[in-house]
Design a protein around this nucleic acid. Sequence first.
DNA 1: TTAAATATCCACGAAAAAGGGGATTTTTAT
DNA 2: ATAAAAATCCCCTTTTTCGTGGATATTTAA
Lengths: 208, 208
Amino acid sequence: MIHVFIVDDHPIVIEGLRAVIDKLDDHEVTGTAGNAVEAVGLLKEVPADVVLLDINLPDVSGIDLCKKIRKEFPEKKILGISTFSERSYISRMIENGALGYLIKSASAVEIAEAIASVMQGRLYMSLNIEHLLRPSSVILPDALPNLTRREKEVLQYIAEGLTNNQIAEKIFVSPSTVDTHRKNMITKLEVSNTAALIRFAVKYGLIE
Amino acid sequence: MIHVFIVDDHPIVIEGLRAVIDKLDDHEVTGTAGNAVEAVGLLKEVPADVVLLDINLPDVSGIDLCKKIRKEFPEKKILGISTFSERSYISRMIENGALGYLIKSASAVEIAEAIASVMQGRLYMSLNIEHLLRPSSVILPDALPNLTRREKEVLQYIAEGLTNNQIAEKIFVSPSTVDTHRKNMITKLEVSNTAALIRFAVKYGLIE
DNA sequence: TTAAATATCCACGAAAAAGGGGATTTTTAT
DNA sequence: ATAAAAATCCCCTTTTTCGTGGATATTTAA
């Protein structure tokens, strides 16, 4: 018997999930909660192998609740649920302890598969692959003005926290030169300062 | 007929995967490559629905190649493969365009399931759940000194290139406060300045 | 109900970066 | 060969950050 616990602030979603899960053999919904506080409280009392956890909760973010559940109940398997099928959401869920990710538009079969997956020791991710395959959402690296070899070298040192003077010593040029490189990169990449420059650079893999 | 292309610098791995895939009905390995350059060249010539892509390649990182393949061949479905089952690797693969993730210790059945999954429009993630469930083995977000909600908010603005003054206006506090948050983060994360702070933050997903 | 963590604020001086000019030499590619 | 790109260097002023060392209120957790 697999015990399932549901956390979602929409009663309709809870009932929908419950209907699907109760129809499955050897599956039982042992409890539900509409917010994080309620969830943590109930999880201490009722058995639960799998926790279906909505990302958008009224009190705490689902991400934070995810962390908390993992900390307090490390043996429970968390399946994130949300309306979004964004890559970023999935990444964040995984990073914060979820073992799977379901979109709310998932079919009954998919829900069953997801629960079976995590119980059998596999991650499960359901989402709209068509959506993810559309490259329009991806900002192409082609549009990047390319930095010169020297600029990249300087950039790497800047990212490591070295100042113009320290970099100058390292690559045997004057601090003015390093500063010029820095300014040129800021202009080229159309960012306002070094912080934004580094963010951009890491994001697009210009530096490690 | 599903066409599979394999990119891995270990010939043994290639042969192993080929053996498994060729045994499947309606599956065919149409080509293999040992490095990124070869892969991009061959993919222009041979048909491929699914690309099995090793993360550790000799010339370019698998992550970068992943991006490139998605840009040049957006219809191809990429399945990342590696020896690691770290949460961070999975996240990075997803972020960079992979639709699935396989560890090299996956069984023949799992490999088949993974290919079937992405072809049917579902992400597939195989990894050792036992490993992920053990909190001690998670090197990433748990080992990080955690930033407070306010700090993260400030951090996000810093990364966007705002100065202390601009952030102060935005979140209705004094510039001193913003500056304190900035300094505290630099101390907490043991970096030398803002540039290094941003690099660290982007790298570990503390900010977008 | 307390202790701890978080969020708020300040001052001061030193160091660094930003923004605006220029300039010359060395490489690279056509 | 020669034009373009890259790399080197400088000045000046203003703005921002860094490094100290504080302080108090508010929130959170044990």
